[in-house]
Design a protein around this nucleic acid. Structure first.
Lengths: 126, 126
DNA sequence: CGGAATCCCTGCTGATACTG
DNA sequence: CAGTATCAGCAGGGATTCCG
């Protein structure tokens, strides 16, 4: 019988977590889920709330999140049409994650450079 | 004088959060940060730990995370070369976020379909 | 070992047009 | 309103090769 170490647990957990990362790693998915964690949104509201996203990409990302069971899509048979997106029960469990992320940014956000990605080079030599 | 509502706060917070999403929305960044939240990793370790990532993409993502101040890169003047990646102080604040995400997946992960994205269509009519 | 450089191809944006 | 469809243009990601 082998003893399971904490490192083993982390490795195995990582394997499981990879599915979770896949669900949320879409280009706009974190932002969409963050918004839907607050309230129900209509398609047009999301589009206005997320500057830079194209209507095509918004559609695609919403469809994927729906297929992955993270949000539900409700069509109202009205004129003009209305479609509402709501977080599902299981995705509601992401609430604490979203709140922790928000709290982190509230505290450390201002200490992060504005648009440095892919420019600076400041590696240390040891 | 206008009264600030909670909705106003959420809207303004969203505007600030968009920078945070940008930092973490890279295709592999959530996973990289999740790993680095546990311990220091060498380049080769990360590559082995993240099946599917190319060495080019790993380099790019690490450089961006470094430029954004989320990790530090330390080069050891040895033969063979060794480079270690470590989470920075400010990114350590992401710990609670990572733990909340892990806890969520531990509880709801098994109820999420395997690879449904971009296939199923189950919108409700209301 | 940990890259950088190269080429190539997929994917996203942006614009526009059309539909239930 | 909330999509779908199409196309041009560019950026990003994948595969391969080379190097200190």
């Amino acid at each position: 019988m082998e003893m399971k170490t904490m490192v083993d647990e982390e490795i195995n957990m990582h394997e499981e977590m990879r599915r979770a990362f896949a669900l949320l790693s879409g280009k706009w998915k974190l932002e969409i889920m963050w918004l839907l964690n607050q309230r129900v949104y209509r398609f047009g509201e999301l589009r206005k709330a997320i500057p830079g996203i194209t209507q095509h990409m918004l559609t695609v990302q919403l469809r994927e999140l729906e297929a992955d069971g993270l949000l539900s899509r409700t069509i109202f048979a009205e004129v003009p049409p209305r479609v509402e997106y709501e977080i599902t029960q299981k995705a509601r469990g992401l609430g604490p994650t979203m709140e922790a992320l928000t709290a982190w940014w509230r505290e450390y956000g201002k200490s992060v450079p504005i648009k440095p990605s892919a420019r600076g080079r400041k590696s240390k030599i040891a």
